[in-house]
């Protein structure tokens, strides 16, 4: 056991508090902003004392944005739904494709497997804008532009490499002997994959799913170019708050709070899967 002196513990506490303040402050400030009107937000100097209002949230939920120039229709709830649907579907497709592929890369060393795996990872190196222009033209010709299917397909560029490389590592960490033992016991390749490899890589698959969900959720540029209003996720939808009569800071803040809430909740919930790790007590260390 590690023993720490009270002074060390105090210093450590202060350091952690500072780090937390540094990283959490913007989020706290956004939450505060979401309960204020544009006038109180733009006060100089800024203050944390204000009369809280829910009008930003009502505007988002009802879809009616009151600006100095009149009432504007926005579809923020539709955007939120789009984000949820696109991210969930992309991760689902990514897992269905990526997990078996990761297993193949981890276990079946075939000719060129490393090259293919690296090529898939290299999708993460290229700036998205590089592929976007040609992709836009292809999508328009193929009729995939502004469809959920097309977007989910493009989202695989974000999701698939992530799932592939994280899950592959977890599969590689499973001692091959455990799978061999199950095969020798009389089970075929598929049931070994289902009953041994998948459950043992479970925490890794959960982690990869969660991370890729967050990456898909936060994506901006693919959806900006390839989707029009009715298919846009929140990241793009937030642009609607930049109106002719100024930027609606209050609504932007409320929109951000609503859009980070699902990923925040998911991260909190899935945290234990990430921490749990593989407990391979069956094999000598």
């Amino acid at each position: 056991m590690e023993t720490t002196s009270p002074v060390e513990r105090l210093l450590r506490g202060i350091a952690i508090t500072l780090v937390c303040l540094f990283f959490m402050f913007p989020i706290v400030w956004i939450v505060l902003m979401s309960f204020q009107t544009n006038e109180t937000i733009l006060r100089v100097p800024p203050s944390v004392i204000f009369a809280p209002t829910l009008e930003n949230y009502t505007a988002l939920i009802t879809g009616k944005l009151e600006t100095a120039a009149g009432t504007l229709d926005i579809d923020f709830m539709g955007n939120l739904w789009n984000s949820l649907f696109l991210s969930t579907a992309s991760v689902a497709v990514g897992l269905v494709l990526g997990v078996p592929a990761a297993y193949a890369f981890a276990r079946l060393k075939f000719r060129g497997s490393e090259d293919i795996a690296f090529t898939l990872l290299s999708f993460r190196f290229a700036p998205p804008l590089l592929v976007l222009l040609p992709l836009t033209i292809y999508f328009q010709q193929l009729g995939l532009a502004n469809t959920y299917g097309g977007l989910i397909w493009v989202y695989q560029l974000i999701v698939l490499p992530l799932i592939l490389w994280i899950v592959r590592g977890y599969f590689e960490d499973i001692p091959a002997d455990i799978e061999y033992a199950y095969r020798i016991a009389g089970h075929d390749f598929w049931s070994t994959f289902r009953r041994i490899a998948l459950p043992l890589a479970g925490p890794g698959i959960a982690a990869a799913g969660l991370l890729s969900f967050i990456f898909a959720w936060n994506n901006f540029v693919f959806a900006l170019v390839l989707a029009s209003a009715d298919k846009q996720p929140v990241t793009v939808g937030a642009l609607a708050f930049v109106t002719a009569s100024g930027i609606q800071y209050g609504q932007v803040a409320a929109g951000i709070v609503l859009s980070i809430a699902p990923t925040f909740a998911l991260a909190l919930y899935a945290q234990r899967y990430l921490v749990e790790g593989l407990s391979l007590g069956a094999v000598k260390g």
């Binding site: 001692p175 002997d177 455990i178 061999y180 033992a181 199950y182 095969r183 020798i184 016991a185 009389g186 089970h187 075929d188 041994i196 043992l200 593989l278 407990s279 391979l280 007590g281 069956a282 094999v283 000598k284």
Partner: peptide, 16 residues
């Protein structure tokens, strides 16, 4: 799985 063999591994290889 079709060889009808029983095997015990040195590292046990139990299903954790």
């Amino acid at each position: 799985e079709d060889r009808g063999i029983g095997m015990a591994f040195q590292n046990f290889a139990l299903f954790p």
